[in-house]
């Protein structure tokens, strides 16, 4: 049997809200070490990679590896039936064709149970090579969300340029052009508010804003986001999930013709 109880159930709600517009169906790979998911969007431009380690659950039981194919839109609807402070348990019997979701109120006086039919998903697994990135930018996730939203006013794509001074987002379209420049923070009260650029070499890449906007829906998961860039390599956008794992998005760059 597979059973994973997540005391902070709202993490799962935020996760699914963050990926449901990007990916329709996904295989949850359940292993003794934890829960993972890898899925590309239908146009193969972006990839979602989720890891939730077993030690983030309480308890976590996985007797053998299981693949749970789940329609994320259905899962999102079901998760809307839970409260933010509910404890959420995912359970799957060894020979079952469904995943069971249990929502438990903090005082345990309300228990709801939903049985979700599993779906068969033909999912290509991709090998993501280890990359030494030219630049790694860390910034508040709310700032990232705001910049992406602001740049969308101007056009469909954004050029992100990392230098020793900081990071610059620029866009241009029919109505005009604009940019937002973030300097590296010198002194901040909280690390979560800082902007840092770890630079090996200056790099400038262009990406579709539509996807960045979808990634930025993960902002409620984590106060900070990390963007990793290398020339002509997919962008990595990473949100840490408390102390238990991460939600990563990869986005293929736009290439000059």
């Amino acid at each position: 049997m597979f059973e994973a109880r997540l005391p902070q159930g709202q993490i799962l709600k935020k996760l699914i809200e963050a990926v449901r517009e990007l990916v329709t169906d996904a295989n949850f790979e359940c292993k003794p070490s934890g829960l993972s998911l890898q899925a590309m969007d239908s146009s193969h431009v972006s990839l979602v990679s989720l890891l939730m380690r077993a030690d983030g659950f309480d308890p976590y039981q996985c007797d053998r590896n299981r693949t749970l194919g789940i329609n994320l839109r259905t899962l999102a609807s079901v998760l809307k039936c839970s409260s933010n402070d509910d404890i959420i348990t995912i359970r799957a019997e060894d020979d079952g064709d469904s995943a069971i979701l249990i929502f438990e109120s903090p005082s345990s006086d309300r228990l709801s149970e939903f049985d979700l039919k599993l779906v068969d998903i033909d999912n290509e697994q991709l090998v993501i090579p280890d990359t030494q990135y030219d630049a790694v930018v860390r910034m508040p996730s709310a700032e990232f969300q705001r910049i992406v939203r602001d740049m969308q006013i101007l056009g469909d794509s954004v050029t992100i340029a990392c230098s020793k001074d900081g990071v610059k987002f620029s866009a241009n379209g029919e109505i005009g052009s604009g940019s937002v420049r973030l300097k590296q923070s010198s002194a901040v009260d909280s690390e979560d508010d800082a902007v840092t650029v770890d630079l090996q070499q200056a790099v400038s890449l262009t990406f579709a804003l539509r996807y960045l906007s979808l990634f930025s829906k993960a902002a409620p998961l984590s106060p900070t986001v990390t963007l990793s860039f290398s020339k002509d390599v997919p962008l990595l956008v990473e949100f840490r999930i408390a102390d238990m794992g991460h939600l990563r998005f990869y986005l293929a760059p736009k290439i000059d013709e």
């Binding site: 990839l47 090579p129 794509s157 990869y250 293929a252 000059d256």
Partner: peptide
């Protein structure tokens, strides 16, 4: 002008 690349060109299918 730029074109959107796809991930298949960067990541290998297992």
């Amino acid at each position: 002008d730029s074109t959107q690349s796809r991930l298949d060109g960067f990541f290998k299918v297992l």
